[in-house]
């Protein structure tokens, strides 16, 4: 009931409208077209000259920047990788060198000690030989002196017992024949 009354009120109001439905009123077309042309033309101009170049510029700069940063990242990563590889290489080299040096010094120490030992041994041997030679010479001298003593003693004994004098040659001959 209320709804029909409300509808009636609405219809009444509608009936009060002018005969021509406003969106189809040709009288307004010229004015609307003119103002649409002016406003849309200005809008198109502002968009194409100012706003679109600006936004596309912004987007371009950003994408360039991103590309450049990515490239830079790649480059830095490659650099870091190279540095790492160089470090590894250096480390391996140093390890190898250290090993070599250790080996070398061991060898050298061994060689040095061997040399020293040799020298000492040689010295000892020469000392020994010298000592032996001296002993031999002393012995020989002693032996020779034994002979001389025997000769002298023999001469003295013979002189005391027999009372004659013997030549050294005779004595020596006799003594040596006895010693034999």
């Amino acid at each position: 009931m209320f709804i029909s009354q409300a509808l009636a009120a609405t219809e009444e109001a509608t009936n009060g409208a002018p005969d021509v439905f406003p969106p189809f009123d040709p009288a307004s077309f010229a004015s609307q077209l003119l103002w649409l042309t002016i406003t849309f033309g200005a809008f198109y101009f502002i968009m194409s000259r100012v706003i679109i170049p600006r936004i596309s510029g912004i987007l371009e700069v950003r994408s360039d920047r991103i590309t450049r940063d990515l490239d830079e990242t790649q480059r830095l990563k490659a650099e870091a990788d190279a540095a790492h590889a160089a470090y590894e290489h250096e480390l391996a080299e140093a390890k190898k060198n250290a090993h070599g040096i250790a080996m070398e010094s061991t060898e050298k120490a061994k060689a040095d000690s061997a040399k020293v030992r040799e020298k000492v041994e040689a010295e000892l041997a020469s000392n020994l030989a010298e000592a032996e030679a001296r002993i031999a010479s002393i012995k020989a001298k002693a032996m020779a002196e034994v002979g001389t003593i025997a000769n002298e003693t023999t001469g003295e004994i013979v002189k005391d017992l027999i009372g004659g004098k013997l030549t050294n040659a005779e004595i020596t001959k006799a003594v040596s024949s006895l010693v034999k």
Binding site: A27, S28, A30, S31, Q32, L34, W35, L36, T39, F40, A42, F43, I46
Partner: peptide, 17 residues
């Protein structure tokens, strides 16, 4: 003789732009 008045429609076109 052609009506090219600045109307409320034109006003809102201008406002839009």
């Amino acid at each position: 003789g052609t009506d090219i008045s600045f109307t409320n429609s034109a006003l809102f076109m201008v406002a839009t732009v």
